[in-house]
Nucleic acid binder design. Structure first.
Length: 463
RNA sequence: GUGCCCGUAGCUCAAUCGGAUAGAGCACCAGCCUUCUAAGCUGGGGGUUACAGGUUCGAUUCCUGUCGGGCACGCCA
C-alpha cells in the first residue's frame, strides 16, 4: 500500500495530512482484518521539482553571500528554503559563492532587475547552476533532499504514520528499471515515435490520448518512472497493490492501468483510492493553500494547533472521496463541541471505574467468567450487541476502504456507554451483578482501545 | 467545451453498495452533579434527500435532462 508520497520539496501541508491519516488508518484496518500489509512511501527524488528546490536554495545562499539575483517567481518561496541555505552557509561559508554573470549569462538583461517567471528561463537557470557548480551541485541537491525527507519522515512519525519502505524514484533509473520497462513496452509494440518523443499507446486501453514516456530532449517523464515503479511492485509479488492518490490525479488512472495491461499484468490487482482535498477553515474563512508560493498551513502547524488526536480523528471521520471542510476552531476546541473527546472520555471513565474497583489481573480473569445472565436491561443488551458487531465493522471498513466506519462505530459505542454510565451503577454490593457489569465495561474499554488504535488516536486513562 | 466526482436538517456529515418512520454531532430550547469523571446524560423543535422526469412493489441510492460546486484535460509532477 502506497500513500502520502509527497514531493520532498517542502513541508507537508494539511492536504498531505489527510492522505497520511487515511492511508495509515486504512493500513491498520486492513492489518486488523487479517491482511499482511506493507506501507510504502514513493520518494520523487529524481525530477525537475528537486532541481527547482536545489536552485532555490542556492539562490538564497547566494543572497547570504551578498549576491542578489531577483528570486524567480516560480521557484520555492518558503522560509524553509532560507533555513536550508543558512545551514549550508554555516557549514561551508563561501565555498559555493559564484559570480552572478555566469548564472545569468544567456538570460535576458531584464533578469537582473526583474524576477523571471517562465519555465524556460527557470530551466536555463538550473542548467547554468549545474554547469557552474559541477560536483557541488550534487552536494546541494543531496543536502536539500536529505533535509526535506528527514523533516517529512519526522513529521509523519509524530503524526503516528510510519512506513515499511521508502522507495526512491532515482533508484529506478540507477538500477535500469525504467529502461527495462520501456524496452518491455517497446518489444510488445506499444510504443511509437512522434515529434521526436516516444509515446505509449494508452488509447488502446481506454485512455483519452496517448502519453509521452520519453521527451524530445531525452528526459523520461514522470509517467515512465511510474510504469517502472508499478512493474516493480508487481514483481515483488504482492497479491494486491493499493495506491492512495489525491483526487486531482484521477485522470492518471487509465494510463497507469493501461501500462500494466500492456505489460501483461492484471490491472484489477491495482486498486486506487482517491482522497479529496481538505480545505481548512479558520474563523469561518478559507485558509490559503499554495505550495509554490509558500502560502500554506503545514501539517506540523496543524498538529501543534489542534493536537495529533483531534487531527487524526477529523481527517478520517469523513468518507475519503468527499471534500473535507476542516474546521480548525472546532478541532482545537477542548469542549463538548469536539467529537474526538467524546470517545476518549468514555475510555477514561471506564479506566477510572476499574481503578476504583481496584481489582488486579487475577480478578480481571475472574470477570471473564462473570455471570452474563445478570446483564438484562435494554441498555446492557444493546451494548452486548454493539460489541458483537465490532469484527463485522472492521471487516466492512477493510472491504470498502472506509476507516470512517470505525470512527462512526466508536462514537455510537461511546454514546451507548455514556448513557449506560448515567443510568446504572457498576460498583454495586451484589458481587455477581458487579462482576457482570464490570466485565461488560472492561470489554467496551478493550474495543474502544482497539478502535482508537486503528485510527491512530490515543486512548487516555485520565482526562 | 469534454471526462470524472459531488449536491441530504441552519452548519459539518452518516445511511450496512435498491428496503420499513432518512440518522448523528454542532448550534438552539427545557431539565439532570451530597452517589463510580457534567469533555457526560434525558427530552424537544428542525427535511419535498438541488430541481424535473423515468425504471421498480419500493429510490438518498439506478437511468436521462436542468441548475449549482469541485477536480482533471501538458513532451509538469
Amino acid at each position: 500500500m502506497e500513500f502520502v508520497s509527497a514531493n520532498p520539496t517542502g513541508p507537508l501541508h494539511v492536504g498531505h495530512g489527510r492522505g497520511a491519516a487515511f492511508g495509515a488508518s486504512l493500513a491498520n484496518v486492513l492489518a486488523a482484518a487479517g491482511f499482511n500489509v506493507s506501507r510504502e512511501f514513493y520518494v520523487n527524488d529524481a525530477g525537475r521539482q528537486m532541481d527547482i528546490l536545489t536552485l532555490s536554495t542556492w539562490l538564497r545562499y547566494l543572497e547570504m553571500n551578498d549576491i542578489h539575483i531577483p528570486f524567480p517567481q516560480n521557484a520555492y518561496q518558503g522560509e524553509y528554503v532560507k533555513t536550508m541555505a543558512q545551514l549550508i552557509y554555516e557549514a561551508h561559508a563561501q565555498r559555493y559563492r559564484h559570480h552572478p554573470d555566469l548564472l545569468l549569462g544567456d538570460l535576458p538583461e531584464s533578469a537582473r532587475e526583474k524576477a523571471i517567471d517562465t519555465d524556460e528561463q527557470l530551466d536555463k537557470l538550473i542548467a547554468n547552476a549545474k554547469k557552474i557548480l559541477g560536483e557541488d551541485y550534487a552536494y546541494i541537491h543531496n543536502f536539500v533532499l536529505t533535509e526535506q525527507l528527514g523533516d517529512c519522515r519526522n513529521d509523519l512519525m509524530e503524526f503516528g504514520v510510519e512506513f515499511d519502505v521508502w522507495f526512491s524514484e532515482q533508484s529506478l533509473f540507477d538500477n535500469g528499471l525504467v529502461a527495462r520497462a520501456i524496452e518491455l513496452l517497446q518489444s510488445k509494440h506499444y510504443l511509437y515515435q512522434q515529434d521526436g518523443a516516444t509515446w505509449f499507446r494508452s488509447t488502446d486501453f481506454g485512455d483519452e490520448k496517448d502519453r509521452v514516456v520519453q521527451r524530445e530532449n531525452g528526459q523520461f517523464t514522470y509517467f515512465a518512472s511510474d510504469i517502472a515503479y508499478h512493474l516493480n511492485k508487481f514483481e515483488r509479488g504482492f497479491d494486491q497493490v493499493i495506491n492512495i492518490w489525491g483526487a486531482d490525479h484521477h485522470g492518471y488512472i487509465p494510463r497507469v492501468k493501461g501500462a500494466l495491461q500492456a505489460l501483461g499484468l492484471d490491472p484489477a490487482k491495482l486498486e486506487i483510492a482517491l482522497v479529496q482535498f481538505a480545505v481548512l477553515y479558520r474563523d469561518g474563512k478559507k485558509a490559503p493553500m499554495s505550495t509554490r508560493s509558500g502560502e500554506f498551513v503545514t501539517l506540523r502547524e496543524l498538529r501543534e494547533e489542534v493536537g495529533k488526536d483531534a487531527a487524526r480523528f477529523f481527517y478520517v471521520v469523513r468518507k475519503s472521496d468527499q471534500h473535507l471542510d476542516f474546521d480548525l476552531d472546532l478541532a482545537k476546541s477542548k469542549s463538548n463541541e469536539n467529537p474526538v473527546y467524546y470517545v476518549q472520555y468514555a475510555h477514561a471513565r471506564i479506566c477510572s471505574v476499574l481503578a476504583q474497583w481496584g481489582g488486579d489481573f487475577v480478578d480481571l480473569m475472574q470477570l471473564t467468567h462473570a455471570n452474563t445472565e445478570e446483564l438484562s436491561n435494554p441498555g446492557e443488551l444493546a451494548l452486548l450487541q454493539k460489541l458483537i458487531d465490532y469484527p463485522d465493522i472492521v471487516e466492512m471498513a477493510a472491504k470498502e476502504f472506509s476507516p470512517h466506519i470505525i470512527a462512526f462505530y466508536l462514537r455510537e459505542l461511546a454514546g451507548e456507554f455514556h448513557s449506560y454510565y448515567n443510568s446504572t451503577r457498576f460498583l454495586v454490593p451484589e458481587i455477581s451483578v458487579q462482576h457482570a457489569r464490570l466485565a461488560l465495561i472492561a470489554s467496551i474499554h478493550q474495543v474502544l482501545n482497539n478502535g482508537l488504535n486503528l485510527l491512530g488516536v490515543s486512548a487516555p486513562d485520565k482526562m
